[in-house]
């Protein structure tokens, strides 16, 4: 029964992934014949490419911020919006709304909001007297990455809220009723009922957000193109530029192999620290 899935997946996912490993051992500009260079690309990445190290660092910071805030916000909002009333449904509809926009639209809108000269965000800060917070969001190496992370959280929190609501609604209501009778506070209820019962959902949310953050491309591409000075460059934008703008296909493939390793490591770390069971029960 799994045959069609396995076939497509093998041909267009696993096979390219293996191909990637082969490319990663070559020096190739896409025009002339590829040249075998063994582990040179990896050696160069590891020892002689400060920029790529910086980009990996960027991506890890980006992922941490997005995973923490997106998961926390969506869990919080989901607990607020758990009951099906007119208001909660309306709010869920509103929160989910950004998800249906294309990422290019979101990038364009937020580029406008962040504009240091006439953007809405700085105008609002100035209007309430917080001139000090009117920063050069996308144009300053110190803020660009975080500015994009905020956009990413804005973009996808609604989606995670829906997943959490679905998960939390499966928790039997009598658990909370019993806790209430016992006089448990909201925090105690959250700690002893919601959190453990929602763990499987959290597993999905965290795993999904992690992958989403490591494959982030669209927002960076449409907001800063990685700049200024690569301060908002992420691994996929780097792969993309190395391959298609600098024509180093082999070197870019080596970067994708590193991306895989980083993602595997981070997922493993998450499993350990959160003790989330991804596997079959």
């Amino acid at each position: 029964m799994a045959f069609p899935a396995v076939a497509v997946y093998s041909f267009l996912y696993l096979y390219p992934a293996i191909q990637n490993l082969l490319y990663a051992t070559e020096r190739w500009d896409g025009v002339t014949k590829p040249e075998q260079v063994g582990f040179h690309n990896f050696a160069h990445l590891a020892t002689d490419d400060d920029l790529f190290m910086k980009i990996v660092g960027n991506n890890i910071r980006f992922t941490l911020i997005v995973v923490i805030f997106q998961t926390a916000f969506s869990l919080l909002f989901a607990t607020f919006l758990l009951k099906n009333t007119k208001t909660t449904i309306l709010l869920r509809v509103i929160y989910f709304f950004p998800t249906i926009l294309s990422s290019v639209s979101v990038g364009l809108i937020w580029t406008f909001l962040y504009n240091p000269n006439f953007g809405f965000i700085n105008a609002s800060f100035k209007a309430i007297g917080l001139d000090g917070l009117a920063l050069n969001w996308l144009g300053d190496t110190r803020y660009s990455l975080y500015a994009i992370a905020v956009t990413q959280v804005w973009f996808h929190t609604g989606q995670m809220v829906i997943i959490y609501v679905a998960g939390l609604q499966q928790i039997p209501a009598d658990l909370y009723e019993a806790a209430e009778v016992d006089g448990a506070s909201r925090w105690q209820q959250f700690k002893s009922i919601t959190w453990p019962m929602a763990l499987p959902t959290t597993a999905v949310v965290v795993a999904y957000t992690t992958i989403q953050s490591f494959r982030a491309f669209d927002l960076v591409y449409s907001m800063t193109q990685g700049g200024p000075l690569n301060s908002s460059d992420l691994i996929v934008t780097s792969i993309y530029n190395t391959a298609f703008a600098s024509f180093k296909y082999g070197y870019a493939s080596a970067q994708s192999v590193v991306l895989i390793l980083v993602v595997l490591f981070v997922t493993w770390l998450q499993r350990r620290t959160l003790r989330i069971d991804y596997g079959v029960k």
């Binding site: 396995v6 997946y9 696993l14 390219p16 795993a207 490591f214 792969i239 296909y249 493939s253 994708s256």
Partner: peptide
């Protein structure tokens, strides 16, 4: 095994395949 195979895909962001897919 099948589940493991597909979990692998979950861990490998599909974006890394862009170069081989492009050439393929």
């Amino acid at each position: 095994l099948l589940f493991l195979l597909f979990s692998l895909g979950l861990a490998i962001p599909g974006q890394v395949n862009i170069i081989p897919i492009y050439h393929l």
